[in-house]
Design a binder for these strands. Structure first.
Lengths: 329, 329
DNA sequence: TAACTTGTGACTACCGGTTACCATAAAGGT
DNA sequence: ACCTTTATGGTAACCGGTAGTCACAAGTTA
């Protein structure tokens, strides 16, 4: 096997006819350097196709310029857009991004945290839906959470879930719905998501209607989810409006509704939640509450950088949502 | 500011009352060790919440257990599923995954390659749609490509694009379409995608029909794409069947068709391409050619690992596609 | 002419592990 | 009683850069 030796700083120095120190100075733009020397060094680097070993530098500097994203999965319109936006911003700031798809499995999330922390990441953005992960308490590494409460000291970026809930339910009420049902994650997952349900219940109570919520786990198959929705239509044939906790579920509900001969928006009105890119493209007919994903990404990156730079009083933020009016409600 | 000192191997050794060597032996499971010592060391590590500095180990071992994924963006049903599947497999094998969203911008792709290679990744999986990136020729690092020709020495995992093209067009012909149009990326992007177009043209010619292809760039906005499709309906009002190069475009075409009063599947039949998870959930009505994304991920990971382990004759593979019959054709 | 500024080299400690080598010692086998 | 296996310690080189210190030379300025 042809063993191709890695080029190191020393090799560049030799070829350029300068000292190791000088090459390092060129690389880091330190000290006094003549243009001539800089050129010589660059030429040598090009000729050898030299790539500085970032690992060695990381070890010395105690900084990796690596951040990790821990979310349930990237195979979901909301997380895909969010992670893409986060990555774009981190890239501009010189950070590389490690992916951590926890599959919404607490053990996996715990493992990921350990592994990613071992990789000496400079910070983490997390948005998994698990609880009680002790790793979060043990570390002092900078962490920002998105749409999820993780711990007292960890700032959260979320959209205005309560307002989103109000907008959605009010829209259904305005459209004349009498029997509105809400779907949401199981509530034991402490997330700002809960506030959507709170808004739903508050508004329903205000209008003297009985709030009914169906729980649907995030991490089960579409078939499983459809089963829940079928049960919903069977148990509540009177339903004429649904406030779904995300657009995927809204889409599944509309499909299941058809099985029960409910046609949107005549016999049934549906409002979704998230309003991600992909959903807007593939299901433009869906009326939904749009989370400001790009802004959330911007804010999360901003907060994480503050933490990385040693700021201590980093505060959680809530960003406004907006309604996208379309034809399903 | 409270400076929290990082715990190192030496600290663990001191607390456990053993030597640095022994701790390292416990960590790496090397040499002779008594159960008693192992326990002592583990206890000390737990007490101190010690995390071995992976960077230091990487530097010595010349192995990072890091791989990078370079794709246009993760905010797309096909790439989201593909990257999720890749990440899942790499995770199981002990590799962490770096995200590189090139935005389909050659300069950005080149930058990413440099950066990721600097990070000493053990390998890369690439699927961007750019050409002529010199970085690919310069490096000897293991690379596997997905659905894209990169260079002679770089193995490609692709699905059977020619067969996919045949299936799609044959379906439209069987449904009685007389005027079938194909949409695809600009052909100067050398990708196996081309074979879909080839199949389309071969089949059209065989049936003595004139093949017509509209080019749509991957990286433009939905609005831009819709403009192209509007032009298509204007220039070819006779069109009654469309073979789209991906499901997103199929979805946009159906929407634009409505503007021209073309209703699917009565006045117009559409077959898409990709059949990713998210698309199946959000647009189940779409008839499409499904790429075997999980299998492609499995194969790509397998090939990359062979390269990482020094195998030299790693061959490209093509995997079968299947048709998903639904209501748009 | 003394005092800086600029430009470069040589040397070394350091980042935090890994591992080879050698030494030592107790336990077990023959 | 001798040899081997098991178990542990100490030391040092090494991975590939970074950066501080000191030295020295040439050019510039007061």
């Amino acid at each position: 096997m042809v063993e191709k030796k890695t080029i190191k700083l020393d090799d560049v120095a030799k070829l350029a006819g300068v000292s190791k120190t000088t090459v390092s100075r060129v690389l880091n733009n330190r000290g006094y350097l003549s243009d001539k020397t800089i050129k010589k060094v660059h030429d040598a680097m090009d000729e050898l196709n030299y790539r500085p070993n970032v690992i060695a530098r990381q070890l010395f500097k105690q900084k990796t310029n690596l951040v990790a994203l821990v979310f349930p999965t990237v195979d979901n319109p909301f997380f895909a857009e969010l992670e893409a936006e986060l990555e774009k911003r981190f890239d501009q700031l010189g950070y590389r991004v490690l992916m951590g798809n926890s599959q919404n499995n607490p053990a996996k999330e715990q493992d990921y945290l350990k592994l990613l922390l071992n990789h000496q990441v400079d910070g983490l953005i997390v948005g998994s839906h698990n609880q009680g992960i002790s790793e979060y308490q043990k570390t002092t590494r900078p962490i920002v959470s998105i749409e999820r409460f993780v711990g007292k000291q960890i700032p959260v970026v979320s959209s205005d879930n309560y307002q989103g809930g109000l907008l959605a339910v009010q829209r259904l009420l305005n459209d004349g719905c009498k029997h509105i049902i809400h779907t949401n994650y199981p509530i034991n997952l402490v997330s700002p998501n809960e506030l959507r349900q709170q808004a739903y219940e508050d508004l329903m109570n205000k209008h003297h209607r009985k709030p009914i919520t169906y729980s649907v786990s995030f991490d089960v198959s579409d078939e499983e989810k459809e089963r829940v929705f079928r049960k919903m239509f069977q148990e509540h044939p009177e339903v004429d409006g649904i406030f779904a906790d995300n657009d995927t579920n809204a889409s599944l509900i509309i499909r299941v509704g058809k099985e029960f001969n409910r046609h949107v928006p005549d016999d049934l009105k549906v409002v979704g939640y998230d309003g991600a890119n992909i959903t807007r493209t593939l299901s433009p007919e869906l009326t939904t509450i749009q989370q400001p994903i790009p802004e959330m990404a911007t804010k999360a990156v901003e907060l994480l950088l503050q933490l990385i730079n040693g700021k201590t009083d980093v505060k959680s933020v809530t960003l406004p949502v907006r309604m996208i009016n379309s034809t399903t409600a």
